[in-house]
Simulated scan of single mutants.
Amino acid sequence: MKPGLIVFLNGTSSSGKTSISTELLNQNEISFYHLSIDDFFNGLFHDYINFINTKYAEDVQGPTHIIIEPLITLFYSTIKFMSVMGTNIVVDTVNDTDERFNTFLGLLMDHPVLLVGVTCSKEELIRREKLRGDREIGLAISQYDKVYCLNEYDLELNTETLSPDECANLILNIIRSNREYSAFKKLNKRSVGVS
């Protein structure tokens, strides 16, 4: 069975990943399944994470870190499984730690990954966070340097100048071209330091 394509949208919170994903899901040419880390946690594990955060509210960092990282590994393992089963996937997540990046790289290295950088200015990220009202102001800026430290992409999209529909069409154009996606294979694991 031919593995499913993984369109990996790399960007901070509020950079426009979900809007692009929605456009890719709404087109009729290529079938995609959308896997979002927000949906993964807020849907499948919402009650579980709430229980942990409530029970151990005084020391959230320790228990949450112990539990969240394995769940993120499960998220990436789900992506790998779906690709193996021939499903095309649009991935919407934030790789803002070296551990998460290395998990992502290790599990998906042998799969067809189209690596797409989704960017906009810091000022625009703050404006979007204020408009959304469901994100802590400054979250995207706190992720910025770690998320955008990659120097290899198959495609870079500036969502300040391109609409979600235009971004989706540029992604589809690369897929239609049948060229090899090489950016992901050029990435190297990051050395994990003390944060």
Rank of each mutant, 00 (worst) to 15 (best):
I89Q: 01
L114V: 13
L115R: 00
D134S: 01
D96L: 14
I89S: 00
H65P: 03
I49Y: 03
I72W: 00
M85Q: 12
L44D: 05
E129A: 09
I68G: 05
T54D: 14
G43F: 08
E136Y: 00
S121K: 10
L71S: 02
H46E: 10
V91Q: 05
I141M: 10
T54I: 09
N53R: 15
N42R: 11
G138D: 04
I52T: 09
V90S: 00
L125K: 14
K122C: 12
I49Q: 02
D92F: 05
D92Y: 04
I52A: 08
F104I: 03
P112L: 07
L44H: 08
Q143R: 04
P112F: 07
G106M: 12
R127Q: 15
F104W: 11
Y144K: 02
T97P: 09
F104V: 05
L115M: 13
I67R: 01
N50K: 15
Q61G: 06
D98L: 03
A57S: 15
T54N: 12
T78S: 08
L105K: 06
V118N: 00
Y48E: 06
K122F: 07
N42K: 13
N95E: 04
T93A: 11
S83H: 04
V84I: 11
C120W: 01
D47L: 15
E99S: 15
V60W: 06
F81M: 08
S121T: 15
F101A: 11
P112H: 07
V94H: 01
I52F: 13
V94C: 05
K55Y: 14
G86D: 01
L114C: 07
Y144M: 04
P112Y: 06
I126M: 15
D96Y: 09
T87M: 07
L114A: 05
L115F: 14
I67K: 05
L139K: 07
V94I: 08
D96I: 14
I72S: 02
I68E: 12
V84G: 06
K122A: 12
Y56T: 13
E136A: 00
L114E: 05
V84D: 14
I137N: 00
V94M: 05
G138I: 01
K80T: 02
K122M: 13
T64C: 08
V84M: 06
H46S: 04
L139C: 02
N102Y: 10
T64N: 07
G43W: 01
S83C: 06
S142Y: 07
S121N: 08
S121H: 14
S77K: 08
V116Y: 00
L74H: 07
F101L: 10
I67Y: 06
Y56D: 08
L71A: 02
G62Y: 15
R128C: 12
G43A: 03
E69T: 03
L108C: 08
N102K: 08
P70D: 09
G43T: 08
V84R: 06
D110L: 09
F104S: 06
D96R: 09
S142C: 07
E58F: 12
M85C: 09
I66P: 02
H111A: 03
F104T: 02
L74R: 05
R127D: 12
R135S: 00
A57V: 13
N95K: 06
E69H: 10
M109N: 10
I89Y: 00
M85Y: 03
H111R: 11
G138Y: 04
T97N: 08
T93L: 12
V118P: 04
F75Y: 08
